[in-house]
């Protein structure tokens, strides 16, 4: 039973395949179309790429990508077509711009903040306790001796 569960975890993620009628006959062109589509967000399901989504709009966009590939457009032109209409959100890997600068800089900022906190905490750590003076040693010895 446990092995079965482990096997299930190992199963490869399944990708929704485009309908056979929508697939390009040329396997190389179809592979290019899928590479582009995996980077395009489905605006309806939002967490998925259009290659993984069954939404109507995702199917339309998959068709448009294939039509444009067949018409000889390159990946950049196709992405630009979609970006002009749907904005940064449609690209699963958003471009670096003034609007997305904070998004891209967040990991660096978080790391910097962490390092800053570490440095500050270190600096504020209590100074080392000085060794006992002779008087204190004597007092301690006396305390130890008393039963």
């Amino acid at each position: 039973m446990r092995w079965l569960a482990l096997l299930a975890l190992w199963a490869l993620p399944a990708f929704a395949q485009p309908l056979p009628a929508d697939r390009l006959p040329n396997p190389a062109a179809e592979a290019r179309a899928q590479t582009i589509g995996r980077e395009i967000r489905c605006m309806v399901c939002q967490g998925q790429s259009i290659e993984d989504s069954d939404a109507d709009l995702a199917r339309d966009l998959r068709r448009i990508i294939r039509e444009k590939l067949v018409a000889g457009q390159d990946e950049g032109q196709i992405r630009e077509f979609l970006h002009a209409r749907y904005g940064d959100f449609i690209l699963l890997r958003p471009p670096f711009s003034a609007a997305t600068a904070l998004l891209w800089a967040t990991p660096v900022l978080a790391l910097g903040f962490g390092i800053l906190m570490l440095v500050l905490l270190r600096r504020r750590a209590a100074p080392p306790v000085p060794a006992l003076s002779a008087e204190e040693e004597a007092a301690l010895a006396k305390l130890k001796d008393t039963p």
Binding site: L57, D60, R85
Partner: peptide, 10 residues
């Protein structure tokens, strides 16, 4: 639905 895509309708 092609004109809707021109407008960015989702």
């Amino acid at each position: 639905g092609r004109v809707a895509i021109e407008w960015g309708v989702y």
